Computed example of a mutant assay.
Amino acid sequence: MSPLIQAPAQFQAPQAGATADARFDVVLAGSVFFDIVFTDLHGVPSAGTEVWADGMGSTPGGIANLAVAASRLGLTTSLASVFGDDVYGRWCWELLEEHEGIDLSRSRRFENWHTAVTVSVAQHGDRSMITHGHPSPISSDALLGDGISSRTALTELGVMSSLEQEPWWLRAAGQGTRIFADVGWDDTGAWDPAVLEPLASCYAFLPNEREAVEYTRTESPLAAARALAAHVPLVVVTCGKDGAIGIDSATGEEVRVPAVPVRAYDATGAGDVFGASFVLGTLRDWPLEQRLTFSALCSALAVQQFGGSLAAPGWGDIADWWEATRASGDADLIRRYGFLQDVLPPERAGAVRRAEATFRLVDHFPPGRHSLSGGQGPAPRDENPVG
């Protein structure tokens, strides 16, 4: 870790206490998908063939990955999205609201509107996706037009830069909400740097290494992070099996942390879990290295199950991992994660744990949050993904 850059003069830290009394810790806006996830295919699909998979699960996806990940860590979470009135939309709504404890007061349901569906194929430590959907009948800005009281907001740059009028997140930023920005895949291959313009009003930017390198026209994740640090106070570049890089432009601090070795099964949603975990550490005023280290762990735990949002870990899963790690005697992990002893909840037996992914009637779920079951598959492989 070393202070390699100077803090740009235009960056200012959020005002202390500006959102101390906010109703929510996190507000999110975006599209919810009904995800069908296949794992461990017997082969690669090709024209005229049928391929069987040993594992399958169904979960709310898209922005729901972030919402569930944040809620599992105890952050009060509000989601503004559009849901169809079909069975997919009703199932996602009820699961998110009733079983994950996510506030949907800013979301809306529309009759005769089809919920977007994504089929995700997890193979060789990564995933490919096929999606069908229709344009949203209402914008996120309309859903959040009258403002919302939140300490942080997570949103995507592509959506942020496409709005002509002053968007909800910009008004929120002006009221002290810290904006954490992500960016989506550019299927045009243009990687237009203009997409990065909203970073001037953001607190943090969390792209993966491919996105960071492409948008900055640099040769490495570290070079990309340094280039992006000129545009936003805090940059985090996730680098898969190589961990993550973080640069705090306000202090000049630069940190690189390794990934956590786990048996990986499905990388769907790992980057979302990383982002939600990083927000938690930020709200708790943890040092940058601790935030990155914690986020690397949470994203690693997420890939041990398939199913995207429902594989997001809770404090119970983190406590289980810490106990197993201490018992294993792994000196390096015990040293790196010693801070968990001070941040884990005292009542670990009843702490929130992740669910396995399944598509069942919500009325038939066992009582209590995160106690779902289903979604079978074989033993996972050894990988080290971090988003």
Results as ranks from 00 to 15, higher is better:
Thr115Gln: 14
Ala172Thr: 00
Glu100Lys: 10
Leu95Gly: 04
Thr131Phe: 10
Arg90Gln: 06
Leu95Arg: 09
Ile148Glu: 07
Cys92Gln: 13
Ile138Gln: 15
Ser139Met: 05
Leu75Trp: 02
Ala116Asn: 02
Arg106Tyr: 04
Gln123His: 13
Ser140Val: 07
Gly184Leu: 08
Ala70Phe: 06
Trp168Pro: 01
Pro137Lys: 13
Arg109Ile: 10
Gln175Met: 09
Met129Arg: 07
Val82Lys: 05
Ser162Gln: 14
Glu100Gly: 04
Met129Gly: 08
Ala153Asp: 00
Thr59Pro: 02
Val87Met: 11
Leu75Ile: 03
Ile130Trp: 09
Val183Met: 09
Ala69Met: 07
Glu164Met: 06
Ser78Ala: 15
Leu170Ala: 15
Ala153Leu: 08
Ser162Arg: 15
Gly74Lys: 12
Tyr88His: 13
Val117Ile: 14
Asp146Gln: 14
Thr152Lys: 04
Asn112Lys: 13
Ile148Gln: 07
Ala67Arg: 10
Asn112Gly: 14
Pro60Lys: 04
Ser139Glu: 03
Leu75Lys: 05
Gly133Cys: 01
Thr177Trp: 06
Val121Trp: 12
Ala153Gln: 02
Arg178Ile: 06
Val117Phe: 14
Ile179Thr: 06
Arg109Glu: 03
Arg171Ser: 05
Ala69Thr: 07
Ser71Met: 03
Glu98Phe: 03
Phe110Gln: 10
Val121Phe: 15
Val119Asn: 15
Leu170Ile: 14
Arg171Tyr: 00
His134Leu: 12
Gly176Ile: 01
Leu163Ile: 14
Gln123Ser: 15
Ile148Trp: 01
Trp93Lys: 11
Phe180Asn: 01
Ser161His: 09
His124Cys: 08
Trp168Gly: 00
Asp103Tyr: 03
Ser150Arg: 12
Ala70Ser: 14
Thr177Pro: 00
Gly133Asp: 01
Leu144Thr: 02
Gly125Tyr: 10
Trp91His: 15
Trp91Val: 07
Pro137Arg: 09
Ser120Ala: 15
Ala70Tyr: 08
Asn112Asp: 11
Ile179Asn: 05
Arg90Lys: 15
Arg151Cys: 00
Trp169Val: 00
Phe180Glu: 03
Val68Gly: 11
Leu73Pro: 00
